[in-house]
Structure formats: C-alpha cells, structure tokens
Computed example of a mutant assay.
Amino acid sequence: MGVEEVGAEARWRPVVRRAWILGWLPQAVLAFAACGGAAWWGARTGTQGPTVTALPVLALLGVAASADAVAHILPNRLLGSASAWLMACGVVAVAARPVLAYDALRAVLCALVAGAISLLVALAPTGLGLGDVKLCAVIGLWLGWYGVSAFVLGLWVGVMVGGVAALALLISRRASRKDPMAYGPYLILGSFMAWPFAAL
C-alpha cells in the first residue's frame, strides 16, 4: 500500500461489502476468466501479439476493478505493475522495430493527457479519486498504442456506462448523491470493451 493510500485510509474508511470477493480464489478465477477470454479471441482473430501484451493488463485491471468495487480503492501495486509491463513491452517493440517509436510516443502522450484531464476533474467535486486518475493514465498508455480513437472510445464507454449505473442507483434510491461511487470498474470495463476492436 502506497503512502497516499495510507493517508486516504486514515481520512476515510469505506464500508467493505462482500469482502470474500477479494480472496485469492475469486481473484484467480476473475483473472483466469479475463485472460482466457482474451486468449480465445486472440487465437480466433490471429492477433496473438497484441493479446500476449494484453493478458497481464487484463488480469491486473480485472483484479483492480474488483478491489475498487468492494473497497473503493485502486491499489498502486496493480496499476504500477500494469504500467511497468506496458512500458517494458513498448521498449521491446521499439527495439525490435524502430518504426513503432511513433506508436510508443502516442501511447505516452495519451497517458499524460488522460492523467492531466482526469486530475482536473478529480480536483472538482465530482467524486473522481486519485486512483481513478492513475487508472486513466494506465488506460491511455495501453489503448493509446493502438490510436487516439481507441483511447477515446475506451474512456468514453467507461464514462457512459458509469453514468448510467449512477443514474440507476439514484433512481432506485440505492444510493444518494453524497454516497461515494467506484468509477474504476466502469472505466476498466470500457477499456476492456474497446481493446478487441483496437487490436484488430
């Protein structure tokens, strides 16, 4: 747990429901399901390269989504590991094919833009947390490799799905405007939905 996470925990402790989801077995099943589905899709479409790169990202972000849904926290070790893997893959790809340097630069710029914009949103009273800011940067680093449109699509789908979910909770009175909401799972879902189209 990072220093900022310790500080956040000292200020606010979420009500953890269904903590069993964070056990090693449910998390392993979740990661296996995400990676298994992606591996099947990659073999079916002949996109083995992008799929191999995406497998650890899918596993790490899938686990991060469940942690945010249950405990309203996006662990730094998961987001950091996903970023480190993506950067390592980018370095290897550029070393093997220098022409891919433009794609790598675009991915870094998308990560910076996503982080900067989401930070501005987080500074306003929107409910977006710093964990979401880091998550947006990771999504930019991942989907930005395939193009700006893939990056925008992933975030747009995540925001739209999150907005619909928030509206449904308000209408059903299962939550009020003052209740915190985990945006991470929706942003991750959006990136998962955009990636197959981007990698084709």
Rank of each mutant, 00 (worst) to 15 (best):
A8F: 03
L60V: 11
A88W: 06
A194H: 00
G190L: 05
P26S: 08
A39L: 15
L189N: 01
S191G: 15
L78D: 12
A124H: 08
G36N: 09
A114F: 04
L58D: 07
A65N: 07
V3T: 12
Y186V: 04
A34H: 06
E4H: 14
M181D: 04
R13H: 12
L169Y: 10
L189C: 08
R11Y: 12
I21A: 15
D103A: 13
G46C: 02
A64R: 01
G158P: 03
R173V: 01
T47Q: 15
L61V: 12
G42V: 02
A84H: 07
L22K: 05
A64W: 07
A116I: 02
L105T: 12
V29I: 12
G62S: 14
A124Q: 10
A38S: 02
A19E: 13
S81E: 12
L128H: 05
G7C: 09
A28V: 07
G163E: 00
A84I: 14
A124P: 04
Y186K: 11
G42F: 08
V52M: 14
V92E: 08
A199Q: 09
A84K: 05
L25F: 06
W41E: 06
A124T: 06
G49A: 15
D103H: 15
P98F: 00
A38K: 03
G49Y: 11
L143G: 02
L86Q: 10
G158V: 03
A166Q: 09
W40Q: 13
G147F: 02
R77G: 06
W20G: 07
A33Q: 02
C110A: 02
S81Q: 14
V108A: 11
G90E: 06
A64C: 12
G90W: 03
A59F: 09
R173P: 03
G190S: 02
A10G: 12
L128A: 13
F32N: 04
L55R: 08
G46E: 06
V161D: 01
S149M: 05
W41P: 00
A65Q: 07
M193A: 15
S83M: 10
S66W: 12
A198E: 03
A199E: 08
L153P: 01
W145F: 09
A82W: 03
L58F: 14
A64K: 08
W142T: 07
G140S: 03
S118F: 13
G163M: 04
W40D: 05
S118N: 06
A34E: 03
G127M: 12
V52N: 07
G7V: 05
A168R: 11
G62P: 10
A84G: 04
G37K: 04
K134Y: 06
G37N: 03
G42W: 10
A34S: 08
I73C: 14
A104G: 11
V152M: 00
A198K: 01
L143H: 04
M181V: 11
K178G: 13
V159L: 15
V113E: 00
G62V: 11
A199P: 01
R17F: 05
R77V: 15
V16G: 12
W40G: 11
T126W: 04
E5T: 11
V159S: 06
G80H: 13
I73R: 15
A64V: 10
A96D: 11
M160S: 14
G158E: 01
L128G: 10
I171W: 11
